[in-house]
């Protein structure tokens, strides 16, 4: 049987710490239509330091898979217009990033703003809102 070498060459994975925040444009779009394209476009998004992206070989607007111990989603990567702290990614509060948050709490407050995950380039399409429900 011929060995499919490509199958074993995985795109490199990098550790990343995700910080969540709010955004008025996304909040307004999702208030209007939670299932709309605009809400998804502004939510399924991770912003990274441009130099870091280069180092990781991730192009602006490329799809990336984010995986934590609790879940995995494909979102779009965008370069931050300013310099960001290294090893960090920023995501707007949304069901997409919430798939990555741990269920372990001692005080009833999940670690929404301190998410350890791995990031890797993905050939898959962005996880749709309907798919999130099936996860």
């Amino acid at each position: 049987m011929a060995l499919d070498v490509g199958k074993f060459i995985k795109a490199p994975e990098y550790d990343i710490k995700i910080i969540t925040h709010r955004d008025v444009f996304q909040a307004s779009a999702c208030e209007e239509d939670r299932f709309g394209d605009e809400c998804q476009e502004m939510s399924a998004l991770i912003v990274l330091d441009a130099a870091e992206m280069k180092r990781m070989g991730i192009q602006d607007r490329a799809n990336v898979r984010l995986t934590s111990n609790w879940g995995s989603v494909v979102v779009r990567a965008r370069a931050s217009p300013r310099e960001e702290q290294k090893g960090m990614g920023f995501m707007v509060n949304s069901p997409w990033v919430n798939t990555l948050v741990s269920d372990e709490t001692t005080d009833g407050i999940p670690a929404f703003k301190d998410i350890e995950a791995k990031i890797t380039i993905s050939k898959n399409g962005i996880t749709g809102i309907q798919e999130l429900l099936l996860l």
Partner: peptide
């Protein structure tokens, strides 16, 4: 909308 606003690991 807890399925959107809570960690999915919990809201599931």
């Amino acid at each position: 909308d807890p399925l959107a606003s809570l960690p999915l690991s919990i809201a599931r």
